[in-house]
Design a protein around this nucleic acid. Sequence first.
RNA 1: GCCCCCAUCGUCUAGAGGACUAGGAUGUCAGCCUUUCAAGCUGAAGACAGGGGUUCGAAUCCCCUUGGGGGCGCCA
Length: 536
Amino acid sequence: MASLREPFISRRGPSPVARLICPSFIILSRNIPMTQPARTRFAPSPTGYLHIGGARTALFAWLYARHTGGQFILRIEDTDRKRYVLDALDKIIAGLRWLGLDWDEGPDVGGPHAPYIQSQRLPKYQEAADWLVAHGHAYRCYCTPEELAEMRAEQQARKQKVGYDRRCRWLTQEERAAKEAEGRSWVVRLAAPLEGEVAFEDEIRGRVTFDVRELQDAVLLKADGYPTYHLAVVVDDHDMAITHVIRGEEWISSAPLHVLLYQFFGWDLPAFAHTPSILKPSGKGKLSKRDLKTPEGGNVPIMLHEYPDYGYLPEALFNFLSGIGWSLDDRTEIYDRETAIKHFDLKAINPAPARFPVEKLDWMNGVYIRQLDVEEFRRRLLPYLSRDLGVPEAELAQDRRLNPLLPHVQERIKRLTEAAQWVDYLYVDEVDLGDPQSLVPRKTTPEEALVILDAIIETLERVDGWDEETLESTLRALAEARGWKAGQVFAPIRQALTGKKVTPPLFPILVALGKDASLTRLRRALNQLRAHLEQA
RNA sequence: GCCCCCAUCGUCUAGAGGACUAGGAUGUCAGCCUUUCAAGCUGAAGACAGGGGUUCGAAUCCCCUUGGGGGCGCCA
């Protein structure tokens, strides 16, 4: 039996973060020096996609590893075979990479503690479970799911506490032999102490204490031979020499279970940090992977892998996410990865749950878009433009008409998906002018508009040089000469060229369209307005 | 129901007993700029959940209440 323990002995000797915690009394050795490189991990389960709250937990774990110069590990917790979602893993990994998180060890990159997929580590958990049973820290439970359901129903009916009543814990050797002779299948349950306290020191919240009487004899090994989360996480975190267990606050309740397991195995305790959850924008409940699409009250997606599609920049999302529950200082909102790494600290995380501040994300994404140099903006934008305009990307890449417009589009959008609406008029043969009345500027009669349009066309036909400066000075001169306000001249042009009343600045549009196309559109508008007037 | 966690502008946050007339950001509103819309600039409104303590002094420490969140599975 001794040999079974062997694989679980720390490879690194006594950990500097050691905490010895026993029921009823607590001995703590505190204060991990910042200089200690941390090994953190993110351990998603492919039972669903990764939601944005989970992504932030991953982000914090990554930041801490990088801050301390340690390692970040990706581990897949796929011990639930019933709820496995086929494409979840791919989407999770793609999402994390897109966000800019990289791992030093993981299922796809390997590492000294491979495999990093729990379903491939089954013997380790089984050995661990056997060891616990052999040492009296766990026992086999032969109850069937039906029996347990019945038990729970009775407890509820009698308004008793609901939970496993430990009936199999007290079975005699003979009774056990009989159950096994029946061919009953069994699970392994933790034999939790009957009284005392378990406590651990949370990096974010300080000491958290539980009365062991609140604990259940939790299942560690399922009837199918797979471990539950509780066993697997402890065995793997120890085996992989994780120094800081960083996970969502929904795990606080089961943390004492894990502390007990460390203690039973005789392993050094890692540091724990339970990150606050991110609540739905409404504030009602935490974000969940069952929420799928966009949260109520917002048009922002919940699942990480959908963010690219919605036109968000990874560096913007990174910055944004890091700012929920943590802040760089008392005034800096925009900062890059390196700066975040430099300043990050688990202890500075605000333990209070936070709503998902939808509005702030769009603002920040806009800031990042504007920060891009135009070439980079163009490169990132093209796939979106292609998709939203229905124009092949190769064609767009050749299209030089886009160039004069790009800086103006960049200044106007918060998400890359909004770009198409600012340039779509370039990709139609004839613009839909709608009501000819829209060609008539404010405080202008239709007759006067006709005159203006006519004058514009005549002027532009004769203009020498088709660049922004020339066009602007020419048209302004026209307005001045005829006693029109600049807006009276610009508005009909905008409408004629784009069919819209809100567009990027006019002169870049004229340049983008070119002289011929511009004049064609202007003449067509003139004709429509004339026809409209004659009809009236 | 029981246990655990949490509580600063609408929202995200700074604040670890005196530097607080509570700072920043977002959102909102107003003004400037202006060819539309943006961007930018300027300004305004806007918070320490309530009640008890401790202290010369509390947003900061303690207790209670209230409110919110999480957990109580052979799910993670």
